[in-house]
Structure formats: structure tokens, C-alpha cells
């Protein structure tokens, strides 16, 4: 018993050390200074719950929370299901599946900063691909400034990432490959269609990997920063503001680190809540193997 405890300690200690070194201090500092007036350099001045009290009246903050929740829903409801669907299609080995599998990860190899530059060009109202394509299809008078009109800004910022599900496709295909082919084959012999096999055999077995994918995607969009910063800057107004960008602006432009950290704490709590709910919903850590 003591020997196995010793082993557990050996397995855990390097991780805990690194965690303490890099993560624990920021978390503690962030939480502690969220109750203070602090420029990020000098001595924080304790002001109780004032920072939190200001949140409900802060329009930028409320919009950022709304956007984060919407992006979370889109990540869980469109981004991940899209990736899983593509993986299921590729799993049937249609024509060109290897090529498409490789290509789908290509956008993930492009640094977000570069991808944002590209999309600034794509959605450029004068010379951009998007408007010119729509005009080429006969809508000659079509004209939209995608990133800066209230009707399209949120959509445009979302399009930049929502269909780039290469990582989801990759991990789902890996999981599909781990399912014994006999399951599918015997079902087909018994008269099931491919669609029924996917729906009744594959999808249930994918529950764990889908859960993992949803959690990673949702936490990622909660922190969205680069895509917004480099395309709309949060505008028009604060229509596309993200929590990540708001924290960045508060800390680096306004030197209001106390308030920025209060929003950081909100982000942390939102993330943990989402994590617990999603992990429960997908029963992520339970053994799903029925074989």
C-alpha cells in the first residue's frame, strides 16, 4: 500500500510542481486582486466587491458574456457536430477521403494571426472574395461591410473558425478506427443500413470523444481573443466583444488590472460551470465500452 502511494506521488509530483510554478500563482493573484484597484504594477488597494458591483452595469461586459455564451452554443451545436459528421462520412472511405482528411487540418496549421489577416481580405467590402463571389453569382448590387455592419459582424467573426473542425475530425476518426470492424459488419449482415450503423452503433461509442471535443471547443471560444482583435476589434460598437479581448484592453490599454481580473474570475467560473455541466452531460470519464 505504501509502495503504491509512493508511486502515485512519483507520478504526480512533477505535474504539481509545474502547476504551482506556472498556474497556481496567477490564479491566486488574479482572484486576490479582483477585489482591488490595481494598475498591474504598484500596490493593489483593497476595494471589496466594487469591481464585481460594476459588472452588471458594464455594457461591454454584458455583450462579451452574451457573445461567449452564443459562441459556446455554436461550438457545441455546429462546430463539433459538423466535425463528427465529416468524420463519419470519411469513415465510409468515399472517393478522395485520404486527401480530404489531410486537407481538413490545413487551416489549423495556419497561425490564427495569419488566418485573421486572410479573412480581413476575404471580407473586405471592396476587393474581398466574399462580396465579389456573391456579385459574380448575379447579385451585382450586393454590398456588405461584413465585419462592421451590426447584422453581419457577429456572423463574419464566427465564420472565421466555425467550420474549421480539423482537430475534431482527426480525433473522431481515431476513435472510429478503434471500434472493432466486426460490430459494423455483423450489423450490416443483419440488414442494417450504413446510416443505422452510424447512428446506433458508432455515435453512442463516440460519446466520450465528442464530449472531450465539445469541452475543448467551448473553453477555446470562451477565451476567443485573436480572431476578434484582428478582425473587428470588438466592433461595431461592442457588438462582437469577447471576454478575452475585453480583459486584454482593460489590462494593457486602461491599466485597470483589478477590474480585468474580476472579469477573469467570471470567465474562470463560467468555464468551470460549463465544464462540469458538459462532463456530466457526456459522462466523459465513465467507461463507455460495451464490448
Amino acid at each position: 500500500m505504501t509502495r503504491s502511494r509512493l508511486w502515485i506521488a512519483v507520478f504526480l509530483i512533477p505535474t504539481l510542481l509545474l502547476f504551482t510554478l506556472i498556474y497556481a500563482i496567477p490564479i491566486i493573484v488574479m482572484v486576490a486582486t479582483s477585489f482591488s484597484d490595481w494598475d498591474g504594477f504598484g500596490r493593489p488597494e483593497f476595494i471589496g466587491l466594487d469591481n464585481y458591483g460594476n459588472l452588471p452595469g458594464d455594457r461591454q461586459f454584458l455583450l462579451a458574456v452574451r457573445n461567449s455564451l452564443l459562441w459556446g452554443l455554436i461550438a457545441a451545436g455546429i462546430h463539433v457536430p459538423f466535425g463528427v459528421a465529416v468524420a463519419l462520412i470519411l469513415n465510409r472511405r468515399p472517393f478522395g477521403w485520404r486527401f480530404i482528411r489531410s486537407i481538413s487540418l490545413l487551416p489549423n496549421l495556419i497561425p490564427p494571426a495569419a488566418l485573421a489577416i486572410i479573412y480581413v481580405f476575404v471580407f473586405n467590402p471592396g476587393i474581398g472574395l466574399a462580396n465579389q463571389l456573391i456579385q459574380a453569382f448575379g447579385f451585382e448590387n450586393f454590398q456588405a461591410n461584413w465585419f462592421f455592419e451590426p447584422g453581419t459582424a457577429f456572423l463574419a467573426v464566427t465564420i472565421v473558425w466555425v467550420f474549421y473542425a480539423g482537430v475534431i475530425i482527426l480525433i473522431t476518426m481515431a476513435e472510429l478506427a478503434a471500434i472493432p470492424p466486426e460490430l459494423r459488419e455483423s450489423a450490416l449482415v443483419d440488414g442494417a443500413t450504413e446510416r443505422q450503423v452510424d447512428w446506433h452503433i458508432h455515435v453512442p461509442l463516440l460519446r466520450n470523444v465528442v464530449g472531450v471535443g465539445v469541452i475543448i471547443a467551448v473553453t477555446e471560444v470562451f477565451k476567443t481573443f485573436e480572431y476578434v482583435f484582428l478582425t473587428t476589434g470588438g466592433g461595431p460598437g461592442a457588438e462582437t466583444m469577447s471576454l478575452g479581448l475585453l480583459i486584454y484592453n482593460l489590462a494593457t490599454v486602461r491599466f485597470n488590472s483589478g477590474y480585468a481580473n474580476a472579469i477573469g474570475v467570471v470567465l474562470l467560473i463560467m468555464g468551470l460551470l460549463a465544464f462540469v455541466l458538459l462532463a456530466r452531460a457526456f459522462r466523459v470519464t465513465e467507461s463507455a465500452r460495451t464490448r
Binding site: Y23, G40, F222, G264, L268, M270
Partner: peptide, 21 residues
């Protein structure tokens, strides 16, 4: 508890981490 604490690190925005790192 250890698992929960380790996982919580994913939700920290980058900004408070820059200075300690």
C-alpha cells in the same frame, strides 16, 4: 480535488499568466 484544480487552469485567460511566466 487535484483533478479539478489542474483542469481549472484551462479557463484562465492569458493576461494574468504573462507576468508570472
Amino acid at each position: 480535488a487535484i483533478y479539478a484544480v489542474l483542469i481549472s487552469s484551462v479557463f484562465i485567460s492569458l493576461i494574468p499568466m504573462l507576468q508570472p511566466i
